[in-house]
Nucleic acid binder design. Structure first.
Length: 425
RNA sequence: GGAGAGGUGGCUGAGCGGCUGAAAGCGACGGUUUGCUAAACCGUUGUAGGGACAAAAUCCCUACCCCGGGUUCGAAUCCCGGCCUCUCCGCCA
């Protein structure tokens, strides 16, 4: 949510930012028009209330003296009716304004390149060297199936396409990966581990910006109006909703493992093979709540924390800054990390690290009291550290051998009971 | 699922129809005192919205005692609905 005052004072700037993000600009003018109406209604309404309060006080005085107040009471009844009609008008205006306001995206940071889509993203750095093979590397679904650690036929029998059934060392590898990531982030990077609910209410989804825009992409339990989390960002960022921090308590770093549920509406036919794009996947998330003046430094260290996972796993990756057109609704600036998958011969996004500035903080109403006692909104950030299926893809495809076996990266071996290689039985 | 109790400021806790944005205490902050600390004493101590001002300071108004409705000239206080917490019973991993 943008500051309404900022929108009032900088409408052109906001519209330019929105069009750079390739979202609807029309909302801004409509919002501002309604805002003018709203303020005049507030003014009128409050003047009436002031009058009513004055009269009520007069009634009280008269009654104390034991005098008759029926005339004033009659007058005041009429004022009450007027107030009611203004309040109805105001309520209608405010709900319209709120709906529009919630749909206005965040403004990209100054240094975000203006661009149309992912082709305009700019690579910042790369890590690792391209692995070469003296045989043709297989895609992960062939490896996983032959090793009997991945069974997509049966998972689709159970739940449908886009769901994963891991077996044996496949499940163990999954568990090893998120344990390893959590240990790294808590042990080396200063994050506190949390284990949040996997279902969240509507307020939480609005708070982080998934709603109202992306409702179609979410799984929802109709009876209770709860949503399956699309990312741990939602429950974790909402931990401190409606709270006020002392400046002494910032920054706060959280890391959490959760499954993530996404309907992937509108992406049918894309990445249908294997486990590149699925409806349920595991992810370790990093979330930071920080002071505004530190948030861009914190973004840099956040992305480094995520990169560290791939470095320790020995997987080649590249890190890019997203252009305005590819930037998500709530983000001001975002880095993507993509890992190289030799069997697929392409890069796969495994992490998206974003600074939301105070956009989410306004929605979830999280502020801090600074050294001068002033209340200010915090900045929120998050990033994957990392998304598992695509990391698994990269591991299987990168460490495959000619005989179809897969070597386990050394850092994972302690989590795998010392197993060094997954072989066909 | 059944029965009951309750949700008031940073916290504890009064108020149960009329200057009550809200007593008292604690905490926090500022000051006096002090060799330092402590203690004591004095003072300050909510947020949001709207308006006045070119703007800041400031001032005025409005709202907020879990949320949403209702009754009333007037609601923290009465009534209804919701959410949450606690206790007991039942059921269950």
């Amino acid at each position: 949510m943008l500051d309404i005052n900022f929108i009032r004072n900088n409408p052109e700037k906001v519209k330019e930012a929105i069009s750079n993000k390739r979202e609807t600009v029309a909302n801004v003018d409509e919002l501002l028009e309604l805002d003018v109406q709203r303020r005049s209604a507030i003014h009128a309404c409050e003047q009436l209330k002031s009058k009513r309060n004055e009269k009520s006080r007069a009634v009280s005085e008269l009654k104390k003296k034991g005098q008759d107040a029926s005339q004033i009471i009659e007058e005041t009844k009429k004022i009450g009716d007027d107030i009611k009609s203004y309040e109805e008008k105001l309520k209608e205006l405010e709900s319209q304004i709120h709906n529009l306001h919630l749909r206005i995206p965040n403004i990209p940071a100054e240094d975000v390149p203006v661009g149309r889509d992912e082709n305009d993203n700019v690579c910042i750095r790369t890590w690792g060297t391209r692995k070469t093979f003296d045989f043709t590397p297989l895609p992960h679904w062939e490896l996983g199936s032959a090793l009997n650690i991945l069974d997509l036929e049966r998972s689709s029998k159970i739940a449908g396409s886009g769901f994963i059934l891991l077996k044996g060392l496949g499940s163990k590898l999954e568990r090893a990966l998120f344990s390893f990531m959590l240990d790294l982030h808590t042990g080396e990077h200063g994050y506190t581990e949390v284990f949040p609910p996997f279902l969240v209410n509507r307020m939480s989804m609005i708070g982080t910006g998934q709603l109202p825009k992306l409702e179609d992409d979410m799984y929802r339990t109709a009876v209770d109006d709860l949503f399956l989390v699309p990312t741990a960002e939602v429950p974790v960022t909402n931990i401190h909703r409606n709270e006020i921090f002392s400046y002494k308590d910032l920054p706060v770093f959280y890391t959490a493992y959760t499954p993530c549920f996404r309907r992937e509406a509108g992406s049918y036919g894309k990445d249908t093979r294997g486990i590149i794009r699925v409806h349920q996947f595991n992810k370790v998330e990093l979330v930071k709540l920080v002071r505004p003046e530190t948030s861009y430094d914190e973004l840099e260290s956040l992305v480094r924390n995520a990169e560290k996972v791939l470095q320790l796993l020995g997987l080649e990756y590249r890190m890019s800054i997203l252009c305005t057109g590819d930037l998500s609704f709530a983000a001001a600036k975002c880095y993507d990390i993509e890992v190289w998958a030799p069997g697929l011969e392409k890069f796969l996004e495994v992490s998206s690290c974003s600074n939301f500035e105070d956009f989410q903080a306004r929605r979830i109403n999280v502020r801090f009291r600074d050294e001068d006692g002033k209340l200010r909104f915090i900045h929120t950030l998050n990033g994957s550290g990392l998304a598992l299926p695509r990391t698994v893809i990269a591991i299987l495809e990168t460490y495959q051998q000619k005989d179809g076996s897969v070597i386990i990266p050394e850092v994972l071996r302690p989590y795998m009971g010392g197993i060094e290689v997954i072989t066909r039985k």
